[in-house]
Amino acid sequence: MAAASWGVAYAAVEVTWALTGTTVPWKAHSAYPQGVQLFLAALALLAGAACLASTRSLSRPGRAGVATVLGVALPVLVVGTVGLPVHFVTLATLSGVESATGLAQVLLNTAGAALLFLVGLSCHRRLRGDCPRCGRPHDGPADGPLAHPAVSRASARTRVAVCVLVGGLAPWAGVKTVWTLGGNALGVAGEDWQRITDAAASGPAKATASVGVDVTVLAAMAGLFLLLALLCTWGQVFPRWTVVLAGRRVPRLLPLIPAWLTGVPLALYGAVLVVMAPLTAVGVLPQIPPSPPFTTGSGITWMAEFGGLAFAGLGTGLVVAARSYAARTRPVCAGALPRVPR
């Protein structure tokens, strides 16, 4: 029902924006065309109807239809969440909202992607004969008490993989730190960088820069903190330094929701930059014209590559860590039977 309600609300918003000619940016200096907005509205209505149909007993063609609609709508909505981390950083640094409609579009896409994913997961479990709630095969209703697994940390393989991925932050964070401290890198003088960023920075951003920490690097550090929570045991039971909450179980969705919502868009955005920068360097794509404080095209191309490695590494690391956390913390219905080989 929640997914169906989202579909109606999403379609109503998109149609209203299309008919009134409201500008809804999807990237810098580009807006959603009216035709795309109407297509998204129709897709949202179809997805909502498919979610309602998924709760009923369907024939094979009916199940195939639901799977097709969800399989088309989910990737479209996921791509539409790419701007979420950028909006998060601007809000967290009190830099203001660049576009209210752009932020609303990203939030609507994010909510839809989350709901459709949950519906698709429930359908997949039901088709396998498993409980749509806990994913395990068992008799009885799916609304009984839940049994939580013992506290555990991520496997060594997962920890190593995440460490390798977040290593992509090093070049980007290093260059930003050099600039913030007044040094020169990639043909950009630290003084020029500070002058331009100070002109557009908010109070918190200026405060962090005064001690040599770029605000975006600070945001990346918050992402690393979330990664540690997903990998370590204190992400499942509140540690002693939380005082009042110490010893209590951490709500499972508390770290998972921000991890998924930031990890997937960051990974997609970073992957685009990682591919785009080398193609630009060899001339396959048009050269990126340098804009202040950059003085050369090569400098801004390198910075795009460093940013891609950082965003893709951190985003993919969050996704990998969240997948491990979700598997290790997934509760099961108290009456669930051990899974039998298939």
Rank of each mutant, 00 (worst) to 15 (best):
L314S: 00
D198E: 09
D130Y: 03
V89N: 11
L116P: 04
E14V: 12
T242Y: 05
T316A: 09
L45E: 13
A322V: 03
F306K: 11
L218S: 06
L40Q: 12
T90W: 15
C232P: 08
A201W: 05
A113C: 02
E191G: 06
L227I: 11
T22F: 07
A113R: 09
P239K: 01
G212E: 10
H29W: 15
K176A: 14
M1Q: 07
F294H: 04
G263K: 07
V215Q: 08
L19E: 15
C232Y: 14
A73G: 00
G317A: 03
R248G: 00
M276C: 05
S324I: 00
T110N: 02
R133Q: 14
V272K: 10
T316F: 12
G203I: 01
G167L: 00
G135P: 11
W26L: 15
A336H: 12
R339I: 15
A321C: 03
A104E: 09
C134D: 05
V151A: 04
E305T: 13
W260D: 04
A28M: 10
G317P: 11
L268T: 07
A49I: 01
G307Y: 01
A100W: 09
E98P: 05
S210P: 02
L107W: 14
G65N: 01
F306T: 08
I288E: 08
V106H: 13
L245F: 12
S152P: 04
P25Y: 09
A4Q: 02
A18Q: 13
L266G: 03
W241Q: 04
H29P: 13
Q236H: 03
V164Q: 02
A201P: 06
S291M: 13
S122E: 15
G168P: 06
A114Y: 15
L43C: 05
L231C: 04
A304F: 14
V166T: 11
A267S: 13
A312I: 06
R249V: 10
I196G: 03
A41L: 05
Q287S: 10
C123K: 06
A4T: 03
V36P: 11
P293K: 04
T242C: 02
A9T: 06
G317K: 02
Y32M: 12
L230G: 03
A47S: 01
G299N: 11
V332I: 15
G297A: 13
F294M: 07
P289D: 04
S99N: 10
R248M: 00
R195K: 11
L254P: 08
R330K: 14
A44I: 08
A205V: 12
V69C: 00
S291N: 14
A4N: 00
L309M: 06
A28N: 15
R330V: 07
T81R: 00
A246K: 04
H29S: 09
A336K: 08
